Computed example of a mutant assay.
Amino acid sequence: MSDDFDQLQDWASDLLTRLQPVERRKLTRQIATQLRKSQAKRIAEQLNPDGTAYAPRANRLRKKQGRIKRTMFNRLRTARHLKAESDASEARVGFSGRDARIAQQHQEGSAPRLPRRQLLGFVQAERESIKSKLIEILSK
């Protein structure tokens, strides 16, 4: 996955230097917001970046018929918790504080009896949308 972004960075770095810092900040803000929305949508669908479903919740959280009371990460995927930040040189999407600790435990599956559920990660559609956004802005 990092190889794709290394290639994207190499391809876009020369083109981005042509933009003024104000235009680069605007572009990175748009990309960060777009990524936050797509990550939140994928978390709501309860899918890992590779397309597999999250590991099911513990049985104690199920109702009589075996259905889940509520989906996981309802609050964590909101804009209040899933932050999109940017400046002229980078766009960041992630969690902070207590939210970051909770997300990291699920991302890595590090806590005992906690299966791995990747909250953050890039899918091919996001890579393509970043490329198209760069092309759109640079072609103006």
Rank of each mutant, 00 (worst) to 15 (best):
R57D: 07
R75P: 04
S2E: 00
R60A: 01
T17D: 11
N74P: 08
I43E: 07
A44L: 12
K83E: 10
A55F: 05
K26M: 09
Q7L: 15
A12E: 03
R80G: 15
L8A: 05
S38G: 05
E85T: 14
L47G: 04
L61V: 06
L19W: 06
T28R: 08
L76T: 11
Q7N: 14
D87V: 12
L15G: 09
A53N: 09
T52C: 04
I43P: 09
H81G: 03
E23Q: 05
W11L: 05
K26D: 12
R75W: 06
L47P: 05
D50K: 13
R42S: 07
G66I: 09
S38Q: 15
R75F: 07
D3N: 13
R75M: 09
G66H: 02
K69E: 11
S13L: 02
K37I: 05
R36G: 10
S2Q: 00
D87K: 11
R75E: 14
S2V: 00
R70D: 09
K83D: 04
L47I: 05
G51C: 03
Q34Y: 01
R75L: 14
R25P: 00
N48Q: 04
L16N: 10
R57E: 07
Q34K: 02
Q46C: 09
D10L: 11
R62F: 12
S38T: 14
R67A: 15
L35P: 06
M72F: 06
Q9T: 15
Q30E: 04
R42T: 04
F73I: 01
P49W: 07
A88W: 04
Q20L: 08
A12G: 06
D50A: 13
R36S: 10
T71A: 10
L19V: 10
D3Q: 13
A58R: 15
D6F: 03
A44Q: 13
Q34C: 01
R77H: 03
W11I: 07
A79I: 00
D3E: 14
T71Q: 06
R24C: 00
L8F: 09
H81D: 04
P56E: 11
Q34E: 02
A84H: 06
R29M: 02
A40Q: 08
T78P: 01
R80W: 03
W11G: 05
R42E: 02
N48F: 04
S2G: 00
P49V: 13
R62A: 12
D14T: 12
L76E: 05
R70M: 09
D4L: 06
K69G: 13
